[in-house]
Amino acid sequence: MADNIKVMIVDDSALVRQVVAQALTSAPGIEVIGTASDPLFALQKMKAQWPDVLVIDIEMPRMDGISFLKKIMAERPTPVVVCSSLAEKGAQASFEALGAGAVSIITKPKLGLKSFLEDSSNDIVQAVRSAARANMQALRSTSSPPLNRPKLSADVMLSASGNRALERTTDQVVAIGTSTGGTQALEAVLTKLPATALGIVIVQHMPEKFTAMFAERLHNLCQIEVREAKHGDRVIPGRALIAPGGRHMMLKRNGAQYVVDVTDGPLVNRHKPSVDVLFRSVAKFAGANALGIIMTGMGDDGARGLKEMREAGAKTIAQDEASCVVFGMPKEAIKLGAAEQILPLEQIPAAIVSYGRGL
């Protein structure tokens, strides 16, 4: 059917190609138009029929997956789902794929691969469907590397303005939640912030082991400090804390200070970390001292939490549809009346700075 999502699978493992193809062809509305054992074979087949979505491995013969991904994004941007091992070397390569424009990552183990892929067939189908809805124009516009500006030391960071009533002397907090397309969106926002920006807490849906590398990459690009959150870390001006993959992160108060509680727990909205968990904690412990921002991502995680933040007196922002890779989470937040403002991605950094100045 003309409306089917056309998928090509590129993996040097015949087993992966077979199992993933079976999972996708059994799902309504998806058509596997071809498979290839390496990117060069794939490119030959793609000349005849270009796929709507690519599912690729990272380590492949003749051309590695990262180079293939960069070539595709440079010549004809196409949604890509990476299916990669979590081995240390593979994890770094998979993270590089996110930075190069991959829409999402499906992690696969080295052992028990067939049973893992069969058990994860629904996740693979959902990842492909999400990728097919990706706004590649928005993805492309946010994937250009920013200028590497010099980092200022902690000595020059300013605290929050002190001319406030006693109940408002505690630090203000910015809470951001995002998912598909969020790696590029967060980079576009955080690299524009000055070293004196408000303390930021972030949930980006990302597998375990990727968040530390993601935070390190952003730290090297930004004027603010960016790091993977650890239990008890303070939320202070000039610092952004990213929830670690596989753990929830909540904001708590310790006297007049804000700290983060990093803890295990069940999946919430099928995610850990969950944006709703973070936003609810911000609503409870920061209230009107917070700014909540929900950005590109599939599903509705964070929509209800953002509404709770607004009801608690926080300022709230949703990213607009045109600049989202996937207009899912912001759309649901807007439908709930959770967003006080709807802004394009390029205006969000200025909104954060303005909020910090009390504007």
Score class of each variant (00 low, 15 high):
M73A: 04
A185M: 04
P349R: 08
A195T: 14
L190V: 06
P330M: 09
R149F: 12
K108L: 06
G299C: 04
G302E: 00
S121T: 09
I124Y: 00
E332H: 13
K315N: 11
T78M: 09
H248A: 06
V53M: 10
M1H: 13
M250E: 15
L117S: 01
A138V: 06
Q18C: 10
G65C: 08
K70C: 05
K192I: 04
A36H: 08
A93T: 04
V82H: 09
S13Y: 07
D123K: 14
G358R: 11
A286R: 03
K70G: 01
K335E: 12
P273M: 00
S104G: 12
A288R: 12
P207L: 02
R253T: 14
Q341W: 09
P28S: 14
L54F: 10
N4L: 10
I293C: 07
V275M: 01
K6N: 11
V103R: 03
S281E: 11
V55G: 12
K284V: 14
L186D: 07
S354I: 10
Q137R: 13
A36G: 07
I334D: 08
P273I: 00
E208P: 02
V325Q: 05
G287V: 05
L113A: 08
K284G: 11
M63L: 11
A350I: 11
P109M: 01
T191V: 06
R168Y: 15
R149G: 05
V189D: 10
V128R: 03
